[in-house]
Computed example of a mutant assay.
Amino acid sequence: MTVDTDSLRPELEAGLAQLDLEPALAAPLLDYLALLARWNATYNLTAIRDPREMLAKHLLDSLAMQPFVRGIGTLADLGTGPGLPGIPLAIATPGLQVTLVESNGKKARFLREAVRQLKLGNVQVAESRIEAFRPGTTFDAITARALATLPLILQLGGHLPGPDGRLLAMKGVLPDDEIAALPAGWRVAAIYPLRVPGLSAERHLLEIVRTRA
C-alpha cells in the first residue's frame, strides 16, 4: 500500500501546531505512518486501515501525552503493538530513551524494521511478554495506551518503574472503577484531560505513582 504523505502533511502540521510541536516533525512521523500502512496491509498490525484516520487516532493521539515525558530519561511502552505511543514520542523527544515491549512476533519484526528505517537511536525493541521482561534496570516511567485495565497493567508491569517511577496511562472516559481497584502500593497522583487534534472523544492521561510508607 502506497500512502500519499504529501496530502496528509498539512493536516499533520496543523495538529502539531495545536500540540505546540515543531512542524519539522511531520516528515519523520509521515515516514513512520507510511511504513505502518504498508506493513499493515499484509500483517494486520492495527485495525485502522485509513492513513488519514491513523494520523489522528494514532500519531496525534500518541503525541498528546508528549508534554508529560519531556522531563524523564527512560520510558517503557508496554504492549506497544505497532509502536504506539512509543515511536511518535521517541521521534518528538530525541532525549528520551524508549523501550518498546511487545510479545507478538509480527509486531516486533515491524518495530525493529521501523527503528532501522527511521534511524531511531533512542529506541530499543524488547520482544517479550510484559511480566517476563526483566531488563536488569528500571524506568522513569512506563506507559500503556490500549493494553488493559489499570490494575492489570500494574500487575504485569509494576516491577518496571523505579522507586520514583510512574505509570502514565492513556485512557478515554475516566475509568473510575479501575481507579478504585488499583492494587495496594499505588495511587493516582494526577489526572490530565488531553485535547487531541482531530478527535472529539474524551481522552485522559493518568499519572499513577507508588504510595509512600
Rank of each mutant, 00 (worst) to 15 (best):
119 K>T: 10
59 L>T: 02
196 V>A: 07
74 T>I: 09
187 R>Q: 10
41 A>Y: 07
66 Q>P: 04
27 A>S: 13
32 Y>C: 06
142 I>S: 12
207 E>Q: 15
48 I>S: 06
18 Q>W: 01
73 G>S: 15
33 L>T: 08
60 L>H: 03
206 L>W: 07
84 L>R: 08
63 L>P: 02
149 T>W: 00
212 R>H: 11
156 L>Q: 08
148 A>C: 05
112 R>Q: 15
78 L>M: 04
165 G>A: 14
134 R>G: 00
147 L>A: 08
108 A>F: 11
142 I>M: 09
26 A>K: 04
6 D>N: 14
107 K>G: 03
128 S>A: 09
35 L>T: 09
192 Y>D: 09
140 D>F: 10
22 E>T: 08
157 G>S: 11
23 P>C: 04
41 A>G: 09
141 A>V: 13
204 H>N: 14
204 H>T: 07
46 T>I: 01
79 G>T: 01
109 R>F: 09
92 A>T: 05
34 A>F: 10
2 T>M: 12
91 I>M: 01
60 L>V: 04
83 G>I: 01
36 L>W: 12
178 E>Q: 01
132 A>L: 02
108 A>G: 14
7 S>W: 12
10 P>L: 08
90 A>W: 00
92 A>G: 03
59 L>M: 05
28 P>A: 06
99 T>S: 12
156 L>P: 00
127 E>C: 14
38 R>D: 15
52 R>I: 09
19 L>D: 07
190 A>D: 15
5 T>F: 15
167 L>F: 11
77 D>G: 07
52 R>G: 08
75 L>G: 01
40 N>A: 10
123 V>S: 01
39 W>G: 04
94 P>A: 05
207 E>L: 15
49 R>D: 05
193 P>R: 14
148 A>L: 03
75 L>V: 02
76 A>K: 04
76 A>W: 02
149 T>K: 02
207 E>N: 14
40 N>S: 10
35 L>S: 10
21 L>S: 03
61 D>I: 06
88 P>V: 03
2 T>V: 12
138 T>I: 03
14 A>S: 12
128 S>M: 01
212 R>I: 06
154 L>W: 02
62 S>H: 02
36 L>A: 07
158 G>D: 06
95 G>F: 06
168 L>R: 11
192 Y>G: 10
202 E>T: 14
50 D>S: 11
74 T>F: 07
206 L>G: 02
190 A>N: 15
6 D>C: 08
74 T>L: 08
116 R>L: 13
28 P>K: 02
158 G>L: 04
77 D>N: 08
208 I>E: 05
89 L>Q: 06
209 V>C: 13
4 D>F: 12
57 K>I: 02
